[in-house]
């Protein structure tokens, strides 16, 4: 076997190692988290789906992720259009600014959002968290949609204009369809950025826990295999959604070529 193949296999193993441990653990029937499990069953899946606290946290997270993703996608799309119409110097500077939240450590952003929320008395609020998550997801939308947008022939929109379409209509008819898969992909990415975000949520949410906060709190006080069941469940869902997003992104590239 070649060295590169071995390194690749090791890399993949390293990436998948947590999943390889978590998934078997989730099917354990033991009372405590342990690897490998001694008895097998669906006990902890049942525990997760029947516990109102876990369910409330899950649905809260889903709601926040849905709204945050929608806001980030719309704002990101508009940003990309705006950036596209600017002069090159403004565009470079502002793009940097839009990408910044992806580079700044989440703790710093969390602290900033927390201080800002304190000033306006908006802590412990689902709305504040949703907006913060939208801001965290915005850079990824700008990057993914921007990459597709830059590949669209600007003459398409001009052609639509000459054909009699107003500016909005021309965008909808000529520019949006070719980049739509990228927009949907960006929305999916944005959704998961919000869905598994812990740090900002920890700062902001005292009473109403999101799913990552619930997992965090649960881990701190007791260690039982419910967490393994939840993790396994969401690994599957995330994998499917991300695969769809990636396929859409690749299709955009093909469509634009």
């Amino acid at each position: 076997m070649r060295l590169s193949t071995i390194l690749f296999a090791m890399g993949v193993l390293l990436l998948f190692f947590p999943i390889l441990v978590v998934v078997p653990m989730s099917f354990s029937a033991d009372r405590f988290l342990g690897f490998p499990p001694r008895t097998w069953g669906l006990t902890w899946y049942r525990a997760y789906f029947s516990d109102p606290v876990w369910m409330a946290a899950t649905f809260r997270s889903l709601r926040i992720a849905l709204f945050a993703s929608t806001i980030a996608t719309l704002a990101g799309l508009l940003s990309v259009i705006g950036l596209g119409r600017m002069g090159p110097r403004w565009r470079a500077g502002l793009t940097g600014l839009f990408i910044a939240p992806a580079i700044v450590p989440n703790v710093i952003i969390a602290l900033g959002v927390f201080i800002l929320a304190l000033t306006f008395g908006a802590t412990d609020s689902v709305v504040t968290l949703t907006l913060a998550h939208a801001a965290l997801a915005l850079p990824f939308v700008v990057m993914i949609v921007g990459a597709a947008y830059r590949q669209v022939d600007p003459n398409l929109e001009r052609a639509a204009r000459v054909c009699g379409a107003g500016p909005v209509r021309a965008f909808m008819a000529a520019t949006l369809p070719p980049i739509l898969p990228a927009v949907v992909a960006a929305a999916i990415f944005a959704f998961f950025i919000s869905f598994d975000e812990l740090v900002v949520a920890l700062f902001l949410m005292g009473g109403a826990e999101t799913l990552p906060v619930r997992i965090w709190n649960d881990l701190r006080f007791e260690i039982n295999p419910t967490i393994a069941a939840i993790s396994a469940f969401f690994v599957v869902i995330t994998t499917i959604a991300m695969a769809i997003a990636e396929l859409l992104r690749l299709r955009t590239q093909k469509r634009l070529r």
Binding site: D153, N155, L156, R158, A159, A160, R161, V162, C163, G164, A165, G166, A170, A173, A174, P177, P178, R255, L256
Partner: peptide, 27 residues
């Protein structure tokens, strides 16, 4: 542009890639 009532052929044709020939011409 949309109110000048002119037709235009672009250098790279600028056909809408997601539309059929019929829909392009019907636009």
């Amino acid at each position: 542009p949309e109110r000048r009532n002119v037709g235009m052929v672009f250098q790279n044709f600028a056909l809408f890639p997601h539309m059929s020939v019929f829909d392009n011409v019907a636009f």
